[in-house]
């Protein structure tokens, strides 16, 4: 017996999901962050964020298709995290890293928070 492992399958599928997002195909939720709107797929959001997982597994909330985030969350920080969810690449700039970390904490994306903290610490050193 043998099997073939396609080593780039995860990135090929993720690229296709991002193409679907950019063409607004089968997106099923709008995330509102301080009046800015971001369309996305609930399944991708809940696969990446503890907060979205708890929202979309809650019988009372799973059919919501507009979600307003806490007004404290910065739209740019959220946008960077949304792009990360669909590309695995997290854009880190001096001017936005705190907004990204704050949004990641709120979205319960602990691994991103830890990585940002290590990046910050390393850049201070």
């Amino acid at each position: 017996d043998s099997c073939i492992q396609f080593t780039r399958h995860a990135s090929d599928v993720l690229l296709n999901l991002n193409r679907l997002r950019s063409r607004d195909i089968l997106t099923d939720v709008i995330i509102v962050v301080n009046r800015e709107h971001f369309r996305a797929h609930k399944t991708v959001l809940m696969a990446c964020s503890g907060l979205f997982y708890s929202i979309f597994t809650d019988q009372m909330k799973c059919n919501l298709n507009i979600i307003n985030l806490d007004p404290e969350i910065n739209p740019e920080g959220f946008q960077i995290l949304l792009d990360f969810m669909y590309t695995s690449r997290l854009s880190l700039r001096e001017t936005s890293i705190m907004a990204v970390m704050n949004a990641a904490l709120y979205l319960q994306m602990e691994h991103v928070v830890d990585t940002c903290q290590r990046f910050l610490k390393a850049s201070e050193e």
Binding site: D1, S2, C3, I4, Q5, T7, D12, V13, R23
Partner: peptide, 21 residues
Amino acid sequence: YDGVTTIKEMGRSVHEIPRQD
């Protein structure tokens, strides 16, 4: 897949969805 020979395929695994139709 214990005990099964795994052959790694580095090429594309699925079709690529175009940026637009």
